[in-house]
Nucleic acid binder design. Structure first.
Lengths: 338, 338
DNA sequence: TACCAAAATCCAATCGATTGTATTCTGGTA
DNA sequence: TACCAGAATACAATCGATTGGATTTTGGTA
């Protein structure tokens, strides 16, 4: 009983042609209502299910969108995926998820694999190692629409859904300045990523506008894992520089920094105030609670998926990529309350 | 240029048959090395990529496994997915992810959809509403192996990968008793789910063995969201019952309870000690840090996937389901340190 | 009853790759 | 040179659903 019934089985059972069965199942106007009823009844009786492989092969679509994120278990990405899956489900699409684990080679292979599987569209948040974009061009050459979310690339011809990283970086830094910080360090990620570059530029702009001197030694780039934040903080304190504020380009590194600060017996926010980025759930409950920039992952995922589905239904990729900027705002908590 | 090259294009370009091309691409012994080289070169030149739809239709496989979880963004599940994706990737499988959002109807539709898409296997963690298992039988009838992870069903013929929930419930409760708690409440989830039933039974067993009286009023069932934990705690305190310990069947509800306790001006753990379940990242940083049961999501996901892939490769579902119990242990933190 | 347009159904090709069988080619031997 | 085994390749059916075009059926009209 391994063999599932096909339209041919239904056709044979009813003594009609399989094309009629196909049309009946697709509710075509070319088939009588009476026939439709008979086909549907027989299909139910046999436990028929359309073979999507065959259907998709013929129609040259897959009803599937491919998603590539750096790491599924990072809260921001899992909530983005939540939004993607939800939106795709409502539109009748499946979602294939894959993670680059921040590795360029892996990202490349994954995207090629998804294209070979003929996904109808791609949603991508690039890895920290991604500096070369040929693998993305492949999607374009295959006429598969691709939308970036969050971690986009600074290349033209692609659409993106993001928050205004420059403004967020600016706001976060200005917030610290307004709280009285004069020596503000910035923990950033790989500078080839637009989001980190923009957050950094926002940081610089806020310093400039408020006449706070910018120092290169205050900017530390890393991969922004918890351990990186811890070490960056340690280096900073060991260097003997005066520091009274930190703007970290993500929450996880901020939490690592907090750990280091506490271990040194310094007080947050009195000695050093901190602002993170992303509003991970952990930032709400840590002591002191972490001031951060709220960016709704599920909202970003949802918007990116809607945009992608629009391109898919139009069957053409706009030559000019569009960029959608979603709202985000600073959430003030105790780590910066002075 | 929408049309991707096919083996026929390669065949035509080289003046050979498409079947030879197919065999060359699959490195068959029936094709000369010289021909293989020519085919590979031409394939690269044309930018050929195998159409998996056609290939899979013919071979009647999909190289895809379907995953159904209650909610992707819950940390435990996203790390399980992380393990699943990683393991599947290494074996050359795609992963289609979908979330039931704890709704039975949705779970049913998702599983039917995955089966219609001819996934090679299914990994399922059921919703809180799931009390009827017909939709799972469909998988069996279609000869599609299915492995439960974490949230399994108490029905025979399926395999599961879990932690020993009874023992964990026992350990968590015993831990509270050894810390001196005498009035221990238990926050549990829907009792049709084996995991909650088993955790509850472990709780009862620990009370019994230590001669602590069991009271029905101490057991509160809910869906274990943060708000549920908060409300359960509120009801408990309002009822005037003496309470000095809580074993919550998940961390999120425990955190809700902590919030309520703090608001009342009671001390954790001095007045009320708490033990959670799952070791969500948040439990490590909350103040006081939460004692909990560690269950590695990615380990569970990995093991479940390995088991599933074994069934897939054997092309037969074992009539007797097997159950794999993974290690888990209590992590003592401040919420129970007396 | 014969005829016709419209409605319903059937036929057959197609999507692209795979695979069992048939055919052709190769080079070694008598 | 004729022959043959074995290697290499070609042929053709197949997976299951879809779809344009051809054919048959229907029922209304003259």
């Amino acid at each position: 009983m391994n063999n599932k019934p096909t339209i041919h089985d239904i056709a044979k059972a009813l003594g009609i042609d399989s094309s009629t069965v196909s049309r009946a199942l697709n509710d075509s106007a070319r088939v009588t209502k009476a026939t439709k009823v008979r086909v549907l009844a027989k299909a139910a009786e046999l436990g028929y299910q359309r073979n999507m492989l065959a259907s998709n092969l013929r129609k040259n679509i897959t009803n599937t969108i491919g998603v590539v994120v750096p790491r599924i278990s990072r809260h921001f990405f899992s909530s983005a995926i939540q939004g993607i899956e939800e939106t795709a489900y409502l539109a009748g699409y499946n979602v294939i998820i894959s993670q680059s684990l921040e590795q360029f080679e892996r990202e490349k292979k994954l995207i090629e694999g998804l294209i070979a599987n003929r996904v109808d569209g791609l949603l991508v948040s690039v890895s920290m190692e991604t500096i070369n974009y040929e693998h993305l061009e492949v999607a374009k050459n295959n006429n598969i629409p691709l939308v970036f979310f969050d971690r986009h690339c600074g290349i033209s011809g692609y659409s993106s859904v993001l928050v205004d990283d420059f403004k967020c970086g600016f706001d976060a830094t200005e917030h610290l300045i307004l709280k009285g910080c004069k020596h503000i360090a910035h923990f950033s990620g790989p500078q080839q990523l637009e989001i980190y570059k923009n957050r950094f530029n926002g940081y610089k702009a806020a310093l400039a506008i408020h006449n706070v001197t910018f120092k290169n030694e205050y900017v530390i780039n890393s991969r922004l894992m918890e351990q990186d934040g811890y070490l960056s903080m340690q280096n900073l304190l060991n260097s003997g520089q005066k520091v009274d504020g930190i703007f970290s380009a993500n929450d996880v590194a901020a939490i690592g920094a907090m750990k280091c600060i506490k271990e040194r017996g310094l007080k947050i926010p009195e000695d050093i105030a901190i602002v993170g980025f992303s509003n991970e759930p952990i930032s709400r409950v840590i002591e002191p609670s972490l001031t951060t920039i709220d960016q709704s992952g599920s909202e970003i995922g949802k918007t990116a998926t809607e945009l992608l589905l629009k391109y898919i239904s139009k069957k053409e990729i706009p030559s000019e990529g569009q960029t959608i900027i979603l709202n985000s705002k600073l959430i003030e908590r105790h780590s910066s309350k002075k």
